[in-house]
């Protein structure tokens, strides 16, 4: 089948998509956007998190056909050229990145949290990021990064 959608603001299309493919596969293998990660491909790790029409979803659980005509934002769309998004800056500065395989998904989930709650408590951060597995960091520096991003955003207001 053919698929049309808007990815990071640009109209994109993919040809010859097999109906069983996930949105994650289309992004990674057909549209050249491997930033969203494939750690489990069964909705358990959050590494593939993207916005689908403004809602944070696991791209591995979205059938490609469901994305027809949709607006998709991926981690590749967050930075403004060389200027990192404040959430990305915070992850770098806090040392929240080790192997980094969880990072794109966590950054998307953090972005989603902070647009809903600008000053989340630690418990709220933990709840919001509970669907994102990280095997390297023990999450402490991820919490630091979210707190830092929230604080910087408040200063920037």
């Amino acid at each position: 089948m053919q698929l049309h959608c808007k990815v990071n603001g640009e109209p994109r299309e993919a040809d010859g998509v097999w109906e069983g493919e996930s949105l994650l596969y289309v992004l990674r293998e057909r549209l050249g956007l491997p930033g969203s990660k494939n750690a489990c491909e069964q909705g358990e790790c959050g590494s593939c998190s993207v916005y689908l029409d403004g809602t944070l979803v696991c791209a591995c659980l979205v059938a490609a056909g469901q994305a027809e005509g949709a607006r998709i934002e991926t981690v590749e769309g967050l930075a403004d050229g060389d200027i990192l998004h404040p959430v990305q800056q915070a992850y770098v500065a806090a040392g929240a990145v080790q192997c980094g395989f969880c990072t794109p998904g966590l950054i998307m989930a953090t972005h989603d949290l902070l647009r809903r709650i600008s000053a989340p408590t630690d418990v709220a951060i933990r709840e919001a990021l509970a669907g994102n597995l990280c095997r390297c960091t023990g999450y402490e520096k991820i919490l630091d990064a979210v707190r830092m991003a929230a604080a910087n955003a408040r200063v920037g207001e």
Binding site: L33, L78, V92, V97
Partner: peptide, 14 residues
């Protein structure tokens, strides 16, 4: 980390 920027942008080639 020299790879941190690429990793947060989703551009690091795993």
């Amino acid at each position: 980390r020299p790879d941190a920027t690429l990793k947060v942008k989703g551009e690091f080639a795993y």
